[in-house]
Design a protein around this nucleic acid. Structure first.
Length: 282
DNA sequence: AGCCAGGGTCTGC
DNA sequence: GCAGACCATGGC
């Protein structure tokens, strides 16, 4: 992988195990939208940590981050896209299992994003008993209504402090149903300091999970998602309806033990494979 | 039209 | 501990 600035853009070349669509459109994040792309380049636009970004991929091994800075690249995007992780080694390990090899080859360009804890927590609270398309709509509305307008029609993710002051009625425009009060409970506990998200980067996983499930509306599955996608804790293994189905068919005795340190990455491959391969459940 | 969605809570055994 | 009803809403 090579990184070089070109004007206001940053070009990454010779990158492997990375595909924009597979990574941004696999249900781990909800605020990226595909822009109109040409034959040559796939483009996505998103806002992370209050920073808008247009990112494109062409020739499979070439990625461009438009109109950003080396500072932001190093401070935000490098970690966010998990560019520094060695996926070659991880895949070699996972591929010792035949089924995991099939699953990871199915969408070899998926990377587990390292998003921001608060946004990830809110997103997966909204995800419960919901479908990905509607989750995206609810979160877009949440940002429009309560996030800071950082540029015309571009909104940052609202802070816990702002949301903590709201009522269920204030959230009515989101049409998030029974999840509204869960979101407010999370905001209250985070804004007050009752839950310290920063501590969850290093707290042992069982305790970290216990902290998150103090929030009404956060169970084990949502907590695991937040730890995996929001804190980069890649040994977490969220079990949703798809993974439950996939596991009972593909891994009735659970994942091989030697893969457990990377269970979260395996989970992404399995999730995507299962969702797009109805024939394995026949 | 009716089932399902990257679940959790509450109640009743 | 575990099963089942229930929760709002819209995608398909």
């Amino acid at each position: 992988m090579q990184i070089q600035p070109r004007g206001a853009d940053i070009i990454i070349t010779q990158i492997t195990h990375f595909n924009l669509t597979q990574t941004l459109d696999c249900g781990q994040c909800f605020r990226w939208t595909k822009s109109i792309d040409s034959e040559l380049e796939t483009l996505y636009f998103g806002i992370v940590a209050g920073k808008p970004l247009l990112i494109g991929q062409s020739n499979d091994d070439s990625v461009t981050l438009y109109n950003t800075s080396l500072e932001d690249f190093n401070a935000i995007w490098l970690e966010y896209f998990d560019f520094n992780r060695d996926y070659t080694n991880i895949k070699n390990l996972l591929s010792q299992n035949e089924t995991l090899k099939i699953a990871s080859d199915f969408a070899p360009g998926i990377r587990v994003l390292k998003q921001y804890p608060w946004e990830t927590l809110c997103s997966f609270i909204m995800s419960q008993n919901n479908n990905i398309k509607r989750i995206k709509g609810i979160i877009a509305k949440l940002c429009e209504c309560f996030g800071e307008e950082i540029a015309p029609q571009q909104y940052a993710f609202p802070t816990a402090q702002v949301l903590a002051k709201l009522t269920v009625e204030d959230l009515a425009p989101l049409k998030s149903g029974f999840r509204a009060r869960y979101l407010l409970d999370a905001a209250t506990k985070v804004a007050s300091g009752e839950i310290d998200l920063e501590s969850l980067y290093t707290l042992p996983l069982p305790e970290a999970e216990k902290e998150l499930t103090k929030i009404v509306g956060v169970g084990v599955k949502v907590a695991q998602c937040v730890l995996l996608y929001g804190f980069g804790r890649i040994e977490c293994f969220p079990i949703d309806v798809w993974i439950k189905r996939a596991m009972s068919t593909l891994f009735p005795d659970g994942l091989p033990e030697y893969t457990l340190a990377y269970a979260g990455i395996a989970q992404q491959y399995i999730f995507h494979y299962a969702r797009n391969s109805p024939e394995i459940f026949e």
